[in-house]
Design a protein around this nucleic acid. Structure first.
Lengths: 189, 189
DNA sequence: AGGGTCGATGAGACCAAGTCCCATCACTGG
DNA sequence: CCAGTGATGGGACTTGGTCTCATCGACCCT
């Protein structure tokens, strides 16, 4: 078996996504994933702590969001800072070339409860990171919690639109509009 | 081994909570749980789909919340309906005699990522149920989403206070206050 | 060129979660 | 007293995940 080919984690992730699409998550074995990537079970678990994690990137999104919140203008309110961060995310991570992949990945996630569960945990941890970032801007506890929660909701809405529409206008603008809509809906509660 | 003792699921859940407190979730085996309850592994998995689920009740909370939202006065706004539902929950489920148990259980959940993950999924499913219930009241999509999300946040805040304080004033009032605070924080975003 | 070091991989034993099938027991009604 | 039914026990089996050790490949240094 040929060793030393580059980017083992990337090959494993690609193989996993393919197999999950073909046969479903539950009907796919870690050994099968590893074999398709030209590797072994041992190596799979050396790169990913468990089978689910192969579909999740390691904190780069969180980092981008936290940085985006931190670097928003000091005059910006909590939700404005979140909007800036989502916009930054749209420029760097949720770029057009990643849209098809994101859609495929999300379809796989939606099809399996175990994966949805992992996604739910990631979402909570992400929200917690946003709260911390807002706290560091001086936003008081509860306000930060509300802003981060609404920001996560806007993210979710914008993401669904982004992977759904064809002639898309990019994640950033969609997120801004979603956040405005959420803000408006919150006002009339 | 004595068979036919009553309430196998309850005995399993109690044994599990005890063992998780003593040795931690990861260091506890399903077989150990079953043995302490006077049962076997087979019976455990007959009552619970997996090891995590032994700490989660089967949808009664969701039912209570959905009913509470449905039976709120027609004039009540979305967040008011949610407040009524949380109040109903405080009267029927989060009663004083369940407080100590809830605290123990929550401590175990917080100590383990796998359990936090399951909790995160439950929270999302609960929020989805609340959204549906609000939709059935005529609350439009996005507004319902925001209201349910803020309601879940208020729940979380109130629950932490409820299991934390000693001379507690009950879950219902705490939830109402939390919801008001969340509403106020949302206004200044 | 050759030997040594080091990080990444392979191989396989091992444990626990979860599934499945079948035997067995206890309670119920006739 | 006996047949039926539902809950339990028992054990084989698959898979996820951990661990340890051997091995390989690249790079470095002389």
């Amino acid at each position: 078996m040929a060793r030393w080919q580059p980017d083992a984690p990337g090959r494993l992730a690609a193989a996993a996504l393919d197999l999950f699409e073909e046969n479903g998550y539950e009907n796919t074995t870690v050994i099968e994933i590893a074999e398709r990537a030209g590797l072994t079970k041992s190596t799979f678990f050396r790169h990913f702590p468990d089978k689910r994690e192969v579909l999740f990137d390691k904190g780069t999104v969180t980092g981008l969001l936290v940085d985006g919140i931190a670097s928003a203008p000091p005059t910006a309110g909590p939700l404005d800072a979140v909007a800036d961060a989502l916009d930054a995310l749209g420029r760097t991570f949720f770029a057009e070339d990643r849209r098809e992949f994101s859609g495929r990945r999300q379809a796989v996630l939606n099809a399996n409860t175990e994966l949805r569960e992992r996604e739910a945990l990631k979402r909570i941890d992400l929200t917690a990171s946003m709260i911390e970032a807002l706290n560091r801007r001086g936003v008081p506890g509860l306000t930060a919690r509300v802003a981060a929660t609404l920001g996560t909701l806007a993210w979710e809405i914008a993401f669904d639109q982004w992977i759904g529409s064809d002639n898309s206008e990019g994640f950033g603008p969609l997120a801004r509009r979603a956040l405005d809509a959420v803000r408006a809906a919150g006002a009339e509660c």
